[in-house]
């Protein structure tokens, strides 16, 4: 795990429908505002969350998200963990290639989300599904 002390309890949300994806965006925006991210960074992290939540829904068959505030002593930030118990991603290099999609999308969600945040970790396997942790720090 990346350094950072969790502040308070993470807020959890199930991802089972399109409405849940909207809720994830709202949840993340709320926390991003609370840790005083700039408007640009708020928009970036909300958009990244939107991408990852939709992937969790569409490819992971649904899952959960946890949104927490983090503090590394110098800066505050928002950390989001997406987890599903879907099929996993067989070829990560391929999945992170701009334009690669198995679902008729633009194929930019995964790679784009990684560019939109400061930290991005992914664990994936056919047994455990996919778990992605992203963090965006205030400047």
């Amino acid at each position: 795990m990346t350094a950072g002390i969790d502040l308070g309890h993470p807020q959890a949300q199930a991802i089972r429908s399109d409405e849940d994806v909207v809720r994830v965006r709202q949840l993340v925006r709320g926390v991003a505002v609370a840790v005083k991210l700039s408007l640009v960074d708020q928009t970036k992290v909300v958009t990244a969350a939107s991408e990852l939540a939709r992937n969790t829904l569409v490819y992971g068959g649904g899952g959960t998200v946890e949104v927490a505030t983090v503090d590394n002593g110098r800066r505050r930030g928002v950390r989001i963990v997406f987890a599903d118990s879907g099929p996993g991603i067989p070829d990560l290099d391929l999945a992170f290639t701009d334009g690669y999609t198995t679902g008729g999308g633009l194929g930019l969600g995964l790679s784009g989300a990684r560019r939109l945040v400061d930290e991005f970790e992914i664990e994936t396997s056919p047994e455990t599904g996919t778990r992605i942790t992203v963090t965006k720090w205030s400047r």
Partner: peptide, 8 residues
């Protein structure tokens, strides 16, 4: 800025 970072 977000659109650019996403690569759209």
């Amino acid at each position: 800025q977000t659109i650019v970072a996403l690569g759209i």
